[in-house]
Amino acid sequence: MELSLLARLNDLTERRRAAIVVTNLSDNTQHLIERTADFSSHPLAQEFEQRFLSGKSGTVETEKGPVFLTVSVPPPRLVIIGAVHISQALVPMAEIAGLSVTVIDPRTAFATEDRFAGSVLKADWPEEALKDTPLDAFTAVAAVTHDPKIDDYPLLAALEANCFYVGALGSRKTHAKRLERLQKAGADPTRFSRLDAPIGLDIGAASPEEIAVAVLGSVIKAMRKPEADA
């Protein structure tokens, strides 16, 4: 691998951009495919599309012999809107599961270091907090404040950014009202089926800790079995 290619790949990774290194195993030549670039004329275009979705590296046979695809997709992130009781349980569990976690809540009474030691806490409005680290397809968003003033904006942004998981806390009634507001705010209703609400796997979760388990289960399902998304 040439340093220039390696440096480009690392730069893309730092900016949370997906890319594939294509290595021809017969002649050892390599090139880089960026997800955002137009690669439709490449003979492996379809293969690239699938690999960007699955994030899995692997060998494929081509006319020119075997080719290895090193797929680099950003590490999955979980953005939790609301520094509430559920979040206190969800943060450590999600971190153990390998997600890097951000908690956003403008209410300084909730967003305290005491309640969220060691985690990335942003005591700010989502509109502000998400400016530095915009949402992307490798990010999951769980909105759990119950407060439309705080939850609605990140939900809109998450649907817009095609986040791999978007969940919102609240009863079916609350959710119906939410959808009305989101549509008024300009959201595309065809994307509403992507919203996980009521939030989390249907395991009868009752306590905040149990709800956190249900939410994490949903996030992992969206990540590992995206085709199962309703």
Binding site: L3, F68, P75
Partner: peptide, 27 residues
């Protein structure tokens, strides 16, 4: 250590003047 950390290490080592090889599980 994720695969991306390793690739960053490869770049850092190389820029520090080391001779470097990269091994990748391909199958």
């Amino acid at each position: 250590h994720t695969p991306t950390d390793i690739l960053k290490t490869a770049e850092v080592w190389l820029k520090a003047g080391k001779s470097v090889a990269l091994a990748t599980v391909i199958e």
